[in-house]
């Protein structure tokens, strides 16, 4: 598994995409931090960027990488290597590469301009989102035989979680605004890793008052130590579940 991960990383490092991604993040982070005097304001802007760019790049990069590595996988399957270690090795290799890019692109600027707990939470959210979207990418690439369909599915997943889902939640809140929705709102946030990541950061920033009653409910729940454990374990679920489903499909796949 680790050997496979090593070759995957070796392969990714030679493609320029990852370097471009790190440089882009680095550029965005530095420019956001240098535009504002107040570092927490920049952190909010940076968060908005991270919440859109990181999942998108993670899911599309991983899906295309998986299809391009199909020949490598085909070669490995005929060798005395178990299918789980092939898939997990691929996952590990892609994950380490993308996390390193994020660490360089966002981690370094945050360390320079905002080395506080909020910056730390932003990094944790970014890492968790990267991992869960790689996991989702592996799910769609294993489920779809055709490259175009796989990338399409990945794009749809990203679009759903970053745009459609929020619209649906808003719709629900409007239609049922005469009912007590506090618990439902928390439950709804758990079904979307991007929302969850955003809430974790916002709670840390103490600006939940801006979000009205919902903010107060969030603050009460996600601000508590139980809430933190809860949100972290839900995040973990978002990383593990798609990967496990992908593993199940991959073990039975005809290559």
């Amino acid at each position: 598994m680790f050997k496979i991960a090593k070759y995957v990383m070796y392969d990714i490092l030679r493609s320029k995409v990852l370097i471009a991604y790190s440089l882009f993040l680095l550029l965005v982070s530095f420019s956001l931090f240098s535009m504002e005097e107040n570092s927490s304001k920049s952190l909010i802007s940076l968060m908005s960027v991270v919440m859109i760019i990181v999942p998108l790049v993670s899911i599309i990069f991983s899906t295309t990488y998986f299809y391009n590595a199909y020949q490598f996988i085909e070669l490995l399957v005929a060798q005395p290597i178990s299918r789980s270690s092939i898939l997990l090795g691929e996952f590990l290799g892609v994950s380490v590469s993308l996390l390193t890019a994020l660490l360089i692109g966002v981690g370094i600027p945050v360390l320079i301009y905002a080395p506080d707990s909020t910056g730390f939470v932003l990094m944790i959210s970014g890492f968790a989102l990267t991992l869960s979207f790689i996991s989702l990418a592996f799910f769609s690439s294993v489920a779809m035989r055709d490259k175009a369909k796989g990338i399409g599915m990945s794009l749809m997943l990203w679009f759903y979680f970053s745009v459609i889902y929020d619209g649906l939640v808003l719709g629900i809140l409007f239609s049922f605004n005469e009912y007590p929705l506090e618990k439902a709102v928390i439950a709804l946030a758990s079904f979307n890793p991007i929302d969850l990541g955003r809430i974790i950061i916002l709670m840390k920033m103490d600006i939940s008052a801006l979000m009205g009653l919902t903010g107060a409910v969030y603050k009460q729940f996600f601000g508590s130590s139980f809430g933190i454990i809860y949100s972290l374990s839900i995040m973990l679920m978002w990383i593990i579940t798609p990967l496990l489903i992908a593993l199940r499909i991959f073990k039975k796949k005809n290559l």
Binding site: D11, R14, A69, Y70, Q71, F72, E74, L75, A78, Q79, P80, I81, S82, R83
Partner: peptide, 21 residues
């Protein structure tokens, strides 16, 4: 099982290899 493949050498009809290696 996968260990049994230690005893097998396979030459495919059309070999697919990682292109940039």
């Amino acid at each position: 099982d996968f260990r049994y493949r230690e005893n097998i050498g396979y030459m495919p009809q059309i070999g697919h290899y990682p292109e940039n290696m």
